[in-house]
C-alpha cells in the first residue's frame, strides 16, 4: 500500500529524514513511535504530500508522489488523515464538515453525502451531534468527528498523526476505541502515537524512529518484549516506566 524507498527530507539545512525505507501492506496496521523530533510526524505527512521529500521515492497504492498535481490529487482522495489538533472547520456544522469534501471533490449528490455522513457519525457513536458546531463539542467528540470526516471519503488508507496527544486523559479511550474498531474491520492504518497500549493491541508492526532514521521495526511482541537496540530500550523504559 505504501512504499518508501531511501527517502530523505530537509527543512532548510536541517535533515529531518535520513534514507528511510518503509513498506506498509494492504490491511496492515503500523504504529510509528519515537522521541520528539525523531521525524515521525514528517514521515507520515509525506504520505499525502503535506510535506514533500527531496530524495528517494514515495509510492502510495501504486501512484508515485512527485510534484505532479494529478498524482497528489489521486493519492489524497484515497488517503484519509486525522490530526493532533483535530482541524475541524469551525464555521461549519458537524454534518457540513463531513459532507464538504465528498460534495466538492467527489461530486457526490448532497443527499447521498449526508446519508454517508450520518452513517459514519453513528459509527463513531455521536449521530446526535450532527447539527452542532465543533466548538460545542468536547475534545474527544471533536476527534471522533474528525475520524468520521476522513472516513466519509472512503479512503483505502488512514493516517493518524498523534490523534490523542491533545486530549484530556478521560477522553483518550473513546477515540482509541473507535480506532481499534476501525483496525478490526481491516482498514490499512499508519499511526503516530505515544499510546503503547494501542500499539500492543492493534499493531502488526511497530516502527521506532530516532534522529530521522528507522532504528527498529518489529511486531509488537518482539519490540516490547525483546528490543534489539539500546535506543529502543531507553525509549521504552522512559515511556512505559511510569
Amino acid at each position: 500500500m505504501i512504499e518508501m524507498i531511501k527517502v530523505s527530507k530537509w527543512f532548510a539545512s536541517f535533515q529531518a529524514l535520513k534514507e528511510v525505507d518503509l513498506a506498509v501492506g494492504r490491511g496492515e496496521k503500523v504504529v510509528v513511535c519515537g522521541p520528539s523530533g525523531s521525524g515521525k510526524s514528517t514521515l507520515i505527512r509525506l504520505v499525502n504530500r503535506l510535506e514533500a521529500h527531496q530524495e528517494g521515492r514515495v509510492i502510495v497504492d501504486g501512484v508515485e508522489l512527485t510534484d505532479d498535481p494529478r498524482a497528489i490529487d489521486t493519492v489524497r482522495r484515497e488517503v484519509g488523515m486525522v490530526f493532533q489538533s483535530f482541524n475541524l472547520f469551525p464555521h461549519l456544522t458537524v454534518l457540513e464538515n463531513l459532507t464538504l469534501a465528498p460534495v466538492w471533490v467527489k461530486r457526490v449528490p448532497r443527499k447521498e453525502a449526508e446519508e454517508t455522513a450520518m452513517h459514519f457519525l453513528a459509527r463513531v457513536r455521536i449521530p446526535e451531534q450532527a447539527a452542532k458546531y465543533p466548538s460545542q463539542l468536547s475534545g474527544g467528540q471533536q476527534q471522533r468527528v474528525a475520524i468520521a470526516r476522513a472516513l466519509c471519503m472512503r479512503p483505502k488508507l488512514m493516517l493518524f498523526d498523534e490523534p490523542t496527544s491533545a486530549l484530556d486523559p478521560e477522553m483518550i479511550k473513546e477515540v482509541l476505541d473507535v480506532m481499534v474498531e476501525l483496525a478490526r474491520e481491516g482498514m490499512t492504518m499508519m499511526v503516530v502515537t505515544h499510546e503503547m497500549g494501542f500499539a500492543k493491541t492493534v499493531a502488526d508492526r511497530v516502527v521506532f524512529m530516532d534522529g530521522g532514521r528507522v532504528v527498529e521495526a518489529a511486531p509488537p511482541a518482539e519490540f516490547f518484549g525483546a528490543p534489539k537496540t539500546d535506543r529502543a530500550k531507553l525509549f521504552l523504559s522512559q515511556v512505559l516506566g511510569h
Binding site: 503535506l50 484519509g80 490530526f83 475541524l88 472547520f89 464538504l100 469534501a101 476522513a150
Partner: peptide, 17 residues
C-alpha cells in the same frame, strides 16, 4: 490556522476550493 488548510488538502480539496 494553518491546520485548516492542511485538513482541507488532506481531504482532497484543491487550492482554490
Amino acid at each position: 490556522d494553518r491546520g485548516q488548510g492542511e485538513a482541507a488538502h488532506a481531504l482532497g480539496l484543491s487550492r482554490p476550493q
